[in-house]
Design a protein around this nucleic acid. Sequence first.
DNA 1: ATTATTTATATCGCGTACGATAATAACGCA
DNA 2: TGCGTTATTATCGTACGCGATATAAATAAT
Lengths: 154, 154
Amino acid sequence: MANDLTPPTTADPMAPMICFDLYAASQAFTRVYKPLLAPLGLTYPQYLVMLNLWSDAPLSVGEIGRRVSLESNTLTPLIKRLQEAGLVTRTRDPDDERRVVVALTDRGQALEAQAAHVPGCILEATGMPQAEIEALQRTLRGLTRTMLDAAASK
Amino acid sequence: MANDLTPPTTADPMAPMICFDLYAASQAFTRVYKPLLAPLGLTYPQYLVMLNLWSDAPLSVGEIGRRVSLESNTLTPLIKRLQEAGLVTRTRDPDDERRVVVALTDRGQALEAQAAHVPGCILEATGMPQAEIEALQRTLRGLTRTMLDAAASK
DNA sequence: ATTATTTATATCGCGTACGATAATAACGCA
DNA sequence: TGCGTTATTATCGTACGCGATATAAATAAT
């Protein structure tokens, strides 16, 4: 650790931090999403949940969680906020009283049309051709799987 | 055990979400970092701050914020926790009383050696050769810049 | 059938993120 | 000099993200 001549100034401690680059890119997306989603009254995680409901509602809390990689400790309050906003309903599944089924209200359903322009705006903001984006997605998914496996095998 | 990699359904609403892939990859890193940093008593954002202090302490709050892309609303409580842990000191800059200068304590300084193995563990967990990681970093940094420019120009 | 285990949500606490705002110090200029 | 402006940090409120734990329903085991 102690060395008197190595230059700490030239070595940027953030330079090798791939995780930081991922974080920064993710935050940059959030900034682009925010002005698009704010008029709809949605945060980005809420938008991800609504995307899945627009596609496949009704869905249980657990099924939503599997799709957006969140668990009930995050999803329960998030979905309650969507409920308070009048976008979804939460009801116990009669066939399995453990489950809570989330469905769209008319207002929640109607919001889909108002959000239709969002994906195009995001794609445009990336400034990358679709093929390059898909290549990046493949790289990221492979990396994610490798990291999760590493974390699991400990 | 929350995990979904490839969409088995035809119309997966998450499929085109590059932002979600970034988020998932970032979370995967967090899971690998956590068991490495927990013995040091650090969270990942705290580790990023300490990295910069190990390299260039003392640093003002604003300078740290510029390096880790966080502002005082997040950094002030974070650094106070580092202070309560006995790792750093916070003092007003006599030359400019607006600034708060963050410096390392002996314990904070000593922690660098205990964290020396972390970057290597992360690199190993990615399973990617250094060159490929650097290529990914370049892609992400370009994308980040483009997105931030898009957000600013709007 | 009773008990044990698993599954599905919910609750709690801590630590980020971040927009909005406040408080104080330093600076620019008439 | 005085005063408006900018810069730096802190405070507040809302919303995630997640580990740990709790609760209740469904299922498996004995």
